[in-house]
């Protein structure tokens, strides 16, 4: 029982980390970044590089953030910028970018599976259960991430501009907010977060050119049911992640794998705004 609860909490935390970058981009730009998976893969390889050059595994995470942000900035400047008014085309173009990222990674590394040194190994005893330390650390990181993003949005002038753009872009522009800059910064930040998520999940997984794709759909569905709110995303992560853990436990891992997608589709059918309370 306790193990199941811990599974639900930590699974939700992982989902939250994976989806937050996508949510930021969707919230501000009303645009779905299908390169999110590709950027996660990039982050995974950043962790592999950190292992290869023999530095502390934690270094892989800022490294991933830098990789992701640079690539995201380039993508926004060259491609995404011209697709703001064509949201469905933007999905396809960013999927194409994801393919490009995957292929360049393949050319630089190879198609094979790579490993990154996990920052933490082992288990701790919690409420009488011995549980993976790393998954618990991820939960703390997810909380910090949510807190940090909220502080940025609430506490800085850029955050204020961003929230203004989320609420009403035309009005924000009329008030002299440089919405182009807000979009660029958001996309860069979102891409960086995607890569960080990729680096953070490497200890649970292996690193290969397609690793992000498996996460993309879950992240995408979570964002759709969350609208543009970080709180809603947290709720959605717990509800859908919890459902996945429970379905996997009772009906097998295979059906668990489609829980998030199927449940999100049904939720959106019944309540198009999903978990957001607007």
């Amino acid at each position: 029982m306790i193990a199941t609860i811990l599974d639900i909490i930590t699974t939700a935390a992982i989902l939250y980390i994976v989806a937050s970058g996508l949510l930021l981009v969707f919230g501000v730009m009303k645009l779905i970044n299908f390169a999110h998976g590709g950027l996660m893969t990039l982050g995974g390889y950043a962790a592999v590089i950190a292992t290869a050059i023999g530095v502390n595994p934690w270094i892989g995470i800022p490294l991933a953030a830098i990789f992701g942000a640079i690539v995201g900035l380039g993508m926004e400047r060259i491609v995404v910028r011209s697709l703001y008014n064509r949201p469905l085309d933007a999905i396809l173009a960013t999927w194409g970018l994801s393919i490009i990222i995957g292929q360049i990674i393949t050319l630089v590394f190879d198609r094979g599976v790579h490993f990154a040194e996990p920052p933490i190994r082992g288990v701790v005893s919690l409420l009488g259960e011995s549980y993976s330390t790393y998954r618990l650390v991820l939960t703390v990181l997810a909380l910090l991430l949510g807190l940090g993003l909220t502080l940025i949005l609430k506490g800085t002038s850029l955050g204020l501009s961003t929230r203004a753009v989320i609420m009403n872009e035309d009005l924000a522009r009329g008030l002299g907010i440089n919405s182009g800059l807000v979009r660029t910064v958001t996309f860069t930040l979102g891409s960086g977060l995607a890569a960080v998520a990729g680096a953070l999940i490497t200890p649970l997984s292996s690193v290969y050119p397609d690793m992000g794709t498996a996460w993309l759909i879950s992240a995408f569905m979570l964002v759709l049911v969350s609208g543009s709110s970080l709180y809603s995303l947290a709720i959605a992560s717990v509800v859908l992640g919890g459902a996945q853990v429970i379905v996997s436990g009772y009906f097998g891992a295979v059906l668990g794998g489609m829980t998030i997608a199927a449940l999100a589709a049904v939720i959106l059918r019944i309540r198009p705004q999903g978990f957001s309370y607007e």
Binding site: A265, R269, P272
Partner: peptide
């Protein structure tokens, strides 16, 4: 395709379909 569904929602459903079908084939 219900009255009032957005284009994006329709696309989302078509995206969920292959995922569900694939998992059913696995299961």
């Amino acid at each position: 395709f219900w009255h009032g569904a957005t284009d994006l929602y329709a696309s989302v459903i078509t995206l969920v379909l292959p995922i569900v079908v694939t998992q059913l084939l696995f299961s």
